[in-house]
Nucleic acid binder design. Structure first.
Length: 266
DNA sequence: GACAACCTGACC
DNA sequence: GGTCAGGTTGTC
């Protein structure tokens, strides 16, 4: 989510009020509807606004159209001034009235879906998303944690809270000194309180620092984030815990690689 | 809840 | 060669 939010705020000043002249799609499966319709519908539209819901980036266009993008693991959306070279793994090029907007995706998992703006609210996926982690109230958060599920799995569930990914769940749980395999309903008031504060703190800091570039993430201008330099546990297997010195442990939880300190998270 | 599938690449 | 990867979806 901090990565998507960073793409949103870096890209917006470059592309809002610009017009999409042409679109070139070299990998058909990335777009919905199929490339021919996608191109026909989007060409000539003006970009009005960029917003975000969970990990989805939404571009409101003229003519009551919205482009909904999910980047998955390796999607990139980057603005380039006229005549700049395209990055590797470029699959879609939007030529604007000034400059180009490039969608690149090494693993090809991302999707770009064009929808009538009035269908966004009822979209089968968007409408099921949980609340925004930075918009949620403490009491609301407390209520979500009544579930009997494993804490890490619960926090990663986009239908519970929309936007938390693997990096941030691990970092938030470290910050709150809570073990990822705990059952959500076993947390004390004090622990819920810590978790809530850490969630806000970590996400806000990560957004300010432009997200985490563990591999190839870049923002809307093609620059890497800096939050990976602040990771305390993520991708730090075997290294000393910054709080107690014990080696960071790597394990598998909720189907995801999970990093934590077995000594000070419990 | 676990796991394969979707892809390509980095690393040991 | 095997494992792992900012994610989600569909299947047992």
């Amino acid at each position: 989510m901090p990565e998507v939010e960073t793409i949103r705020y870096t890209l917006a000043p470059k592309i809002v009020h610009k017009t999409i002249k042409t679109v070139d799609i070299s990998l058909a499966k990335l777009v919905i509807p199929e490339p021919q319709k996608f191109r026909a519908q989007i060409q000539g539209r003006k970009i009005l606004r960029l917003w975000r819901r969970g990990k989805y980036l939404l571009l409101d266009l003229s003519g009551q159209l919205t482009l909904m993008i999910h980047f998955r693991m390796t999607g990139q959306l980057v603005y380039f001034p006229p005549s700049a070279p395209h990055p590797p793994y470029t699959h879609i090029v939007f030529t604007l009235n000034q400059g180009v907007l490039v969608y690149a995706d090494l693993r090809q998992f991302g999707r770009l879906e064009l929808l009538p703006s009035n269908k966004i609210e009822k979209h089968p996926i968007l409408s099921k998303l949980g609340p925004e982690p930075l918009g949620i109230k403490r009491e609301e958060f407390e209520a979500l944690l009544k579930a009997k599920r494993v804490l890490k799995a619960l926090l990663l569930d986009q239908n519970v809270i929309a936007g938390l990914g693997n990096i941030y769940v691990d970092e938030i749980l470290f910050c709150a000194a809570i073990a990822p395999h705990r059952k959500a309903c076993s947390l004390s008031r004090a622990e819920i309180s810590r978790l809530f504060c850490c969630l806000q703190r970590i996400l806000k800091e990560a957004i300010l620092l432009g997200g985490s570039s563990v591999r190839n993430y870049v923002n809307g201008l093609g620059y890497k984030g800096k939050f990976q330099e602040r990771h305390k546990v993520y991708h730090r297997r075997g290294q000393p815990c910054p709080r107690c010195g014990h080696a960071i442990v790597y394990t598998r939880l909720a189907g995801r690689g999970t990093y934590y300190c077995p000594q000070c998270q419990y």
